[in-house]
Design a protein around this nucleic acid. Structure first.
Lengths: 133, 133
DNA sequence: GTATGTGTACTAGTGTCTTAGTACACTGGT
DNA sequence: ACCAGTGTACTAAGACACTAGTACACATAC
């Protein structure tokens, strides 16, 4: 490919109240989730993106580092950052902890809307059949 | 009712890294979501809980205030704090839509961590057994 | 080895979050 | 009116989150 490696357009909204580094993370996650960014593709360079967004390089680094920690991105000193092959290199224990955190957070959230654990289970089982099997 | 009004047992883990007030919120939300706390039931008093948890009253207040803001709890100066009747004056259709949005959003979130709907269902059913029910 | 492009480390300022100390105000029963 | 129980307001200290400034280190091509 001699085309531009990363057409990924990241923009940040200084008025949103969401930290810059987190806005970067979110947009990269989205790009991966919806297929715009594929495995092996290079992300914008730290400096390049920093200049684009008029932000400190460290802010970009912070975003990339968190993505790397999650296994979504691989960084190579001197070379660049790339979308990595997402292998869930988590132990079962870690997996269980993460799931617990996620689910409990969600349960709390839905209680604010007046829903119950029972409601979710019902919905999910229905949902499973629906997308079915 | 002359029985104890709030058998709700709240505990906080100082080592978890989760703010005290947030741990309180989470546990109350969970209790509501899973049915241990029902509408009208009194929450532990601000001072009582503060003493129990060896925490400043303001920390408890902060938790209750956020819950009140969300409509989950009603507090009455001088009287106490209670689980409020969450009327979302929503039609069944709206309710279903909201639940659908919430759950689907959550499902896409957990998929990015490699979890499945099955994982959630399993976790939730286990959880329900665990708390008695 | 030099140049240029890449990521990294160290430091520090600013603001926000979290919690506590303390004193005040409301409610209901006596 | 009083009292004991309840929530509330004001203040401030400490920890942490976020961002920036600046200098350093690695990778690759020439």
């Amino acid at each position: 490919m001699d085309k531009k490696e990363h057409e990924l357009k990241i923009i940040i909204d200084p008025t949103s109240g969401i930290p810059y580094y987190r806005q970067i993370i979110l947009q990269i996650e989205m790009a991966v989730a919806d297929g715009r960014m594929k495995v092996g593709k290079q992300l914008p360079t730290v400096r390049g993106l920093a200049v684009d967004l008029q932000v400190n390089p460290n802010t970009v680094v912070r975003a990339y580092r968190e993505l790397e920690f999650r296994g979504l991105v691989t960084t190579q000193h001197g070379t660049g950052s790339f979308i990595s092959d997402i292998e869930m290199n988590m132990s079962d224990v870690e997996r269980a902890q993460v799931l617990s955190q996620l689910v409990r957070g969600f349960v709390s959230q839905i209680s604010s809307y007046g829903f119950t654990v029972e409601d979710i289970i019902t919905y999910l089982t229905d949902y499973q059949e629906e997308i079915g099997l």
